[in-house]
Design a binder for these strands. Structure first.
Lengths: 340, 340
DNA sequence: TTGAAAGCGGTACCAC
DNA sequence: GTGGTACCGCTTTCAA
């Protein structure tokens, strides 16, 4: 194994200087730095994570808290983060924490003390726990929030313009000719819920369409709750929406499920739109029209911010990333339009 | 932080003795061992992973290779492994490797050299690469295979009795009254493919049902390929199966998709059964009748075998784990039975 | 701007 | 069966 000594010898400097280069210290002559960097490359030197962690008392790895195995938002982001970390040359350490577990704070403490991570990526739904933020700040751990409901001044937040996306996907339904459009919302407190719904409302109001209370349901971002909501919304055969925009793909799938069980065909009798573009969007029939989240960009950006050597410059600079409307088979003109 | 010195002092022994206890060395009087263990507990001592890794040159963490983000088999197993490792007090280090990448061997080498893991859990489809096995053996890395197609004498293999499961789920279809039963198989070389199909064939033959070549299709374990296969199998409206057993849930979902697009209702016109019981099984409509894989047990067993202090005793002891038939809405009696 | 030396928390090799 | 001590590869402190 090639060590810092080998590099130092090759570059003709002391190991301390190599260490400085390694840690992006400013007080190294750029000429010296170049020499050292060249030596590193020629020797294919990789610093020992273990040694650095042992000496400094903290890991350079990035931590991520997972709680869900369904392959939805979290799963996608985890893979994207793994990829981003590999590209960035650092490690990702995943911890499994169930937010419904009463002593998850202990779990978290165990995670941070054993892994000694000092930077973390927080994803929904856990990223919205103020308690979590407090605990991390108390432990002096930097974190980046992905699609948070609750911003934190001390942390970077990364997300998409949910309101605009909600607006656009509703617009798509309106453009198809729908005038009776329902919405299944997510968990009440979530900013994502509020923004997606706000976009929906703005699109309706802009086109002069009526907002019907009965056509806005709660789905809690879950398949199960959305089932109940959709069933209620579609119950009245004489007066039901011809299109439903669900605030995530899982709930949209539930709407399709419900429609099918009521003998309604998607998209002929009912158009359904989702949000996120996770695996289920292309695995159900028909494939869902949805909004694609930029998972890769989110992860890369999150990692970049966390390992950036000049964190102050990045501090508090929240980013809004682009997302795309993906039109698939679950949306079509309403029956009335086709009859004409 | 409490170190080995603190423990040594408290127990009244040298640090070397503490180290021996830590490493399950045999040459320690059980009385001394007890004393040390008590001291550890009282001080809430946790050995430093970094220090151990630095000194010994190898990590105690368990590695896992992931390649898929869809939330299927891999995703479930990853979460289960995370849980199992947490329970066992060790870490899981995930690496992302695309087996279709030409230089994945380099990726693997980079992973092992940076993480210094010496034990790994291998999951499908990557666990079936002989090249991978060779590379790991060459690097003196122990591994446990989950549901492998290719056993390896030097490694423990964990899986379910695929043949029996395939038999039972086909039996379920037969018991419902189906006589025209199709099968969508997985990737040709996989043992899972062969066994699930063998179970299907055994069930048919036991009931004296005819095996039709045209009703056995290739689905490569993927949604996309299963679509093509299912479309072909269901093309002839006058002579098509009334039930299809697909070798995994994704393909079963594709069968449902195809059925729907052909105007066939599941399960009224066509019963569909899957395999694995991953997220998609309960998210599509109707929910899939399938075989539930014991992910938690697999992961726990894999971790246990890998960290067992007496690896020789476990060597080569492959385990067959139990799986369960889960009956949901996608299977029902055939149309003919209902007409009577 | 650079270097020498100490030491992070364990394990390995050696004595006893 | 037990203890002393060197040392893994790096960062830190202090001095130059």
């Amino acid at each position: 194994m090639v060590t810092i000594f080998d590099v130092a010898k090759k570059a003709g400097v002391s190991i301390k200087t190599v260490s400085r280069v390694l840690n992006h210290a400013t007080n190294v002559r750029s000429e010296t730095r170049k020499k050292v960097q060249l030596a590193m490359r020629e020797l294919d030197y990789h610093p020992s994570f273990a040694a650095r962690e042992l000496r400094s008392g903290q890991s350079r790895a990035i931590g991520i808290i997972l709680s869900d195995s369904s392959g939805g938002f979290q799963g996608r982001l985890h893979m994207a983060a793994l990829q981003a970390c590999r590209n960035a040359g650092c490690f990702l350490t995943a911890g499994l924490i169930d937010e419904n577990d009463d002593n998850w704070t202990d779990e978290l403490a165990a995670f941070t003390s054993r892994t000694r991570v000092k930077r973390m990526i927080l994803v929904p739904p856990f990223c919205d726990s103020t308690l979590l933020h407090e605990q991390l700040i108390a432990e002096d751990i930097a974190f980046t929030l992905i699609s948070p409901s609750i911003m934190n001044e001390g942390a970077v937040s990364l997300g998409v313009n949910e309101e605009q996306a909600g607006f656009e996907i509703t617009q798509h339904l309106i453009a198809l000719g729908h005038t009776k459009i329902g919405h299944i919302a997510g968990i009440a407190g979530h900013v994502a819920t509020q923004f997606r719904k706000a976009g929906y409302l703005r699109a309706l109001s802009q086109s002069g369409l009526k907002v019907r209370d009965g056509w806005i349901g709660d789905g809690e971002f879950s398949f199960r709750d959305a089932l109940t909501s959709a069933r209620k919304m579609l119950a009245d055969a004489d007066d039901r929406p011809t299109a439903i925009f669900a605030a995530n793909d899982e709930m949209a799938a539930a709407v399709c499920y419900t429609a099918n069980s009521l003998g309604l065909s998607v998209p002929d009798d009912l158009s359904v739109a989702g949000f996120d573009d996770v695996a289920i969007a292309t695995t159900i029939w028909p494939p869902l029209t949805t909004v694609s989240q930029p998972f890769d960009v989110m992860a890369e950006e999150a990692v970049r911010r966390l390992i950036d050597t000049d964190p102050d410059a990045q501090h508090g600079l929240n980013s809004t990333l682009e997302c795309r409307l993906i039109i698939r088979g679950s949306t079509a003109p309403p029956p009335s339009a086709r009859e004409l």
